[in-house]
């Protein structure tokens, strides 16, 4: 029995190590390409560790005015993306919490139908909404601004509402009843009693929202017109398709720069995230 267990553990670890290598090698290649001298980039057999490190490519990818080739202003794009992400996340957290709470804790006529419709919206593919939403924002003169990208977040999203509603359902009513007897208003109960209990769930919504915006490509592609307004994802595509293409080492440098912040964010939020998903209980 014991031998079997040890063997099983060993097998498990071997498998994990092999899988980790498969998952991680693209990242190693990603970081190592821009660090290499040009001659080693295309060499066969491949060079994993550069003969000498050069950091030029990172600098070139970030530095937009100094270089004749007109590379992409990554710092500007980074700022655009961060502001957009913050606006979206703020809206998502606030409005979805409110709405999900409304669904979870109050009975009102039409609630079930409304909730089923909410679930159904998750099935509407974005391309279906694309054309009419574009016409709508055009009529509002919002194309070419950031508003089409973040304003909808302030009006909720089906997925997050569903996630949070499941969570609110697990919070016992006694707590809010007690506050209600103390004479607290419904909004005060929501903000002061319920929300503090929901941090992990809200963190999940925030993180998914952040990733969604950070990774969004189609939205900015449609609504942002001026190159100076671009987000990182879109900027990177412009970078790639720039006249006949940009050298791979520069592309990889730019890519690493874009990825880094999210990876750091995740490392900090990892525990909270798994907890959060566990408590929201998707089922």
């Amino acid at each position: 029995m014991k031998v079997r267990r040890i063997l099983a553990t060993m097998g498990k670890h071997t498998l994990l190590v092999v899988l980790s290598i498969l998952f991680a090698f693209p990242f190693v290649w990603l970081i190592s390409t821009p660090l290499k001298p040009d001659a080693e980039v295309m060499r066969n057999p491949p060079v994993w560790i550069p003969s000498h490190f050069q950091f030029d490519n990172f600098w070139k990818a970030m530095n937009f005015e100094g270089d004749k080739l007109g590379y992409i202003p990554f710092l500007v794009y980074g700022r655009n993306t961060v502001v957009l992400c913050l606006l979206t996340v703020l809206g998502l957290v606030i409005s979805n919490a409110l709405v999900a709470y409304g669904f979870a804790k109050f009975r009102f006529p039409g609630r079930n139908l409304f909730f089923i419709l909410t679930l159904a919206t998750m099935m509407i593919p974005f391309p279906v909404l694309m054309v009419p939403t574009f016409s709508l924002f055009r009529a509002m003169d919002w194309v070419g601004t950031y508003r089409p990208l973040w304003v909808p977040a302030w009006f909720g999203s089906g997925f997050s509402i569903f996630l949070l509603r499941q969570f609110f359902k697990t919070i016992p009513n006694e707590l809010s009843e007690a506050a209600r007897i103390d004479g607290a208003s419904e909004f005060a109960i929501f903000f002061e009693v319920v929300l503090p209990l929901c941090k992990p769930a809200l963190a999940v919504v925030a993180l998914f929202g952040f990733m969604g915006t950070w990774n969004d490509f189609l939205g900015p592609l449609i609504y942002l017109l001026d190159q100076k307004q671009f987000t990182l994802g879109l900027g990177l595509q412009a970078f790639q398709s720039q006249h006949g293409g940009t050298p791979f080492s520069l592309q990889m440098a730019a890519t690493s720069i874009v990825i880094l912040p999210v990876v750091i964010l995740f490392i900090f939020m990892q525990r909270l995230l798994v907890q959060g998903i566990a408590v929201t209980g998707i089922k």
């Binding site: 700022r79 655009n80 502001v83 957009l84 913050l86 606006l87 703020l90 070419g144 601004t145 950031y146 973040w150 001026d226 307004q229």
Partner: peptide, 10 residues
């Protein structure tokens, strides 16, 4: 503040 900033960016 964020909203104002995003407007300024555009």
């Amino acid at each position: 503040a964020l909203f104002a900033y995003s407007e300024k960016m555009a």
